[in-house]
């Protein structure tokens, strides 16, 4: 009798412990999320005014000026990178889906995985060596190339996954109609997987919008407007990184303001992907 009771008590204690461990862990993980959002909004909102969006950064240490060239820079870098990275990523994904049974494709699929895992700063070093060094100048195009390389494996993998999810009956129906294979893939299978592919693209765009490391040694950052793809360019991420470490409160305030903008974009794009994923 006593042993059954003590066994029951022991089990009760074990179960309670398990529940406490699980729920505490969840709370511990969510606290930083809220703290980051709260602090970024609280400190960032102070920096936001019209000048913040339309003016160039003022002289170091003075509270005048804005971050307009960083906003412009991020837009240009992300657009250029997307123009290069999206087609390559999507076509790679199509190849892996359609010809995934070929011997050659194993090697390609393996490379895509490894490229996906590469620390992004390594990509920056690579572009520095092959683009910046021969051109003798940091440049917008070098930054865009680095970001494109970060994008390609993300898009390739999500495209392949979304194509795999398309029921084989759809693709077979196309083949039965006698449509050439490539038209079948592009117009029927890819079309059915469109929302998944689009989600992957948004995911990749979100990721490169927040990238800093590969830009340090490629696009460098700048205090001026964009002045050509062979010249350095600023970005929100580089601005946050540099301004946060400066001893001037006005610079730190701008860093928080830029972080506010960046976080807003990142979270919004991410929630779009999440809701898109659910509607499928």
């Amino acid at each position: 009798m006593i042993s059954t009771i003590s066994l029951r008590v022991k089990k009760k204690i074990q179960n309670t412990f398990l529940f406490l461990f699980a729920s505490l862990s969840t709370v511990i993980a969510i606290i930083p999320l809220f703290s980051i959002i709260f602090e970024v909004v609280k400190n960032g909102i102070k920096a936001i005014n019209l000048d913040f969006f339309i003016l160039l950064p003022g002289p170091v240490g003075e509270s005048v000026g804005g971050i307009a060239n960083a906003i412009q820079g991020t837009l240009i870098l992300v657009t250029l990178a997307s123009i290069i990275g999206i087609p390559i990523g999507v076509i790679t994904g199509i190849y892996l889906y359609e010809y995934g049974r070929e011997k050659k494709s194993t090697l390609i699929s393996f490379s895509v995985d490894l490229l996906y895992d590469l620390p992004s700063i390594v990509v920056g070093i690579f572009v520095y060596i092959v683009v910046v060094s021969p051109m003798h100048s940091f440049s917008t195009i070098a930054g865009a190339l680095a970001l494109a390389i970060v994008m390609i494996p993300i898009i390739a993998k999500t495209t392949e996954e979304s194509l795999t999810l398309v029921p084989s009956t759809i693709s077979e129906a196309g083949i039965a109609l006698g449509i050439p294979k490539w038209k079948n893939i592009i117009f029927i299978v890819l079309n059915s997987a469109k929302s998944g592919v689009l989600n992957g693209i948004i995911l990749a765009v979100t990721r490169i919008t927040g990238e800093t490391a590969p830009l340090i040694m490629t696009s460098l950052g700048s205090t001026f407007w964009f002045s050509g793809i062979n010249k350095p360019i600023n970005s929100l991420t580089l601005l946050i990184w540099r301004y946060a470490m400066q001893p001037y409160p006005s610079a730190v305030e701008k860093a928080w303001g830029a972080a506010f903008l960046l976080l807003l974009v990142a979270l919004a794009l991410n929630l779009i992907v999440k809701s898109g994923g659910k509607s499928k």
Partner: peptide, 8 residues
């Protein structure tokens, strides 16, 4: 959340 914001 971008890594640089974690840093900040």
């Amino acid at each position: 959340i971008p890594s640089v914001i974690y840093g900040l």
